[in-house]
Design a protein around this nucleic acid. Sequence first.
DNA 1: ATGTCACTCAACGAGTGA
Length: 270
Amino acid sequence: MRTLSLRNVSAILPSMKIASWNVNSIKARLTHVKDWLATAQPDVLLLQELKGLEFPDMEFTALGYHSKCVCQKSYNGVATLSKSDIDVICDYLPNPGEDDQARYLEADINGLRVINIYLPNGNPAPGEKFDYKLGWMDRLYARLKALREARVPFLVGGDFNVIPEDRDCYDATAWEGDALFRPESRAKFRALLNLGLYDAFRIFNSEPGQYTFWDYQAGRWQKNQGIRIDHFLCSPEVTDRLANCAIDRDPRGKEKPSDHTPVIVEVNRP
DNA sequence: ATGTCACTCAACGAGTGA
C-alpha cells in the first residue's frame, strides 16, 4: 500500500478562507461577529475599528479561534482571529517610522504572511489628517516593497479607506475632494499595485455596484449607494493560489449593523 | 437632506471621528 505524500495530503485539504470586516466597535458588534463566524466559518478573520481597550478574546476562544489584537482607547484598533496559531511578526507599521495608532498587525498563519490594516481615513482634506494618511501609505509601501524583495508570499487585507476607481463608488461627483477618493490617495493605492500586488476582488468580479461600505445616513444602504474601500491585496504567489473573492452583504442588512460588510478571499493550499 | 452611529467626559448633552 502506498502512503500519500505530505504534498498530496495538503492538496486535498479545502482552501483557506480569510475574511476582513470593519466592525465599527467590537463591543457594539460582538453578537454580529459571533453569529457571522458561526455561519461563514472563516479560517481567519481580520477585524478593524475595534474602538476600545477591551478586546473580548474569551468569546472567540469559546468558538475555537485564537486571537491577537492591537488596541487603543476610543479609536482604531485591529484584531486577527484564526482557527490556527497566530505568529505575530509585528504589531505596528515598522518602517520607516513608528506608529502611535493601532492600525497594523502582521502575522504568519499556516505559513502565510497575513497583514491586517486599518488605513487612516484622512478627512478633512487637505489638512493634518490627510497628510498623516499619505505618510502612512508611504510607510505601508516601504514595508510591502521590502516583503516583495524578500519574496515573502503575503496578503494584506483590511479597511484601506481608498476608493480605487470610479466604478467602486456610486457617485464619483459626490465623493470628489473626499480623502478616500482624492487623486493623491488613489495614486498611492496604485503604487501598491505596481509593486506587483493584485486586488483580489477584481480578479473575480468586474461589475460596478459592488460595495463594502454604505453610510448610515440618507438611506445609502437601501439605495445601494456605497463605496468599495475594504480590500485584499495579494502578492503574485498568493494571487496564483486564489480560488475566490466575494463580498458578503448579509451583515450590513441586520439590525444595528456596522457600516461595513465582510470581504472574503479563498486561498488554495500550496 | 443639515439625514447616523459610537466613543468619551462627565452627564442626563456636547464634542469628536468616521
